[in-house]
């Protein structure tokens, strides 16, 4: 299982990369492996305002549809439309295939996110 150095992780197996107040958001290698072959990603629209806990992305595999909840309050400033044509990139390269970029209103909502080592330890415990 691949975990990268410079990202932050949560217990939902999502990653973010923070630049200023903009968080690039995706799912981890562990998550894509659990989901299996991803066939479709329902994306939010740019300029959508989201609140922490809103269901804002749906990831579909053949036999499941998983709602992804927004980790923060903020505004969607970009969506990865390449996923429309190539949802499999979430399986093939989960850390390159970002899903959305969110302008975060309150960075303290990210305080509990883990670094690489902590996340690896968390995954080891999950398995």
């Amino acid at each position: 299982m691949k975990v990268l150095e410079n990202l932050l992780y949560n217990e939902e197996h999502e990653w973010i990369q923070l630049e200023g107040d903009v968080a690039t958001f995706g799912i981890t290698d562990y998550a894509q492996d659990m989901l299996g072959g991803i066939v479709y990603v329902e994306l939010p629209e740019e300029e959508d305002e989201v609140e922490q806990g809103d269901s804002f992305i749906t990831i579909e595999s053949v036999k499941a549809a998983t709602d992804v909840l927004s980790p923060v309050d903020g505004e969607i400033i970009a969506v990865n439309e390449a996923l429309d044509d190539a949802p499999e990139s979430l399986n093939d390269a989960p850390y390159e295939a970002w899903i959305v970029k969110i302008r975060v209103n309150d960075l303290s909502q990210l305080d509990n996110w883990m670094d690489k080592e902590a996340y690896e330890a968390f995954c080891a415990k999950e398995a």
């Binding site: 479709y40 595999s61 053949v62 036999k63 499941a64 549809a65 709602d67």
Partner: peptide
């Protein structure tokens, strides 16, 4: 195909 829209997978959604 496209079964993730359907009741047996997505239930109340």
């Amino acid at each position: 195909t496209l079964q993730a829209r359907e009741q047996h997978i997505r239930r109340d959604k």
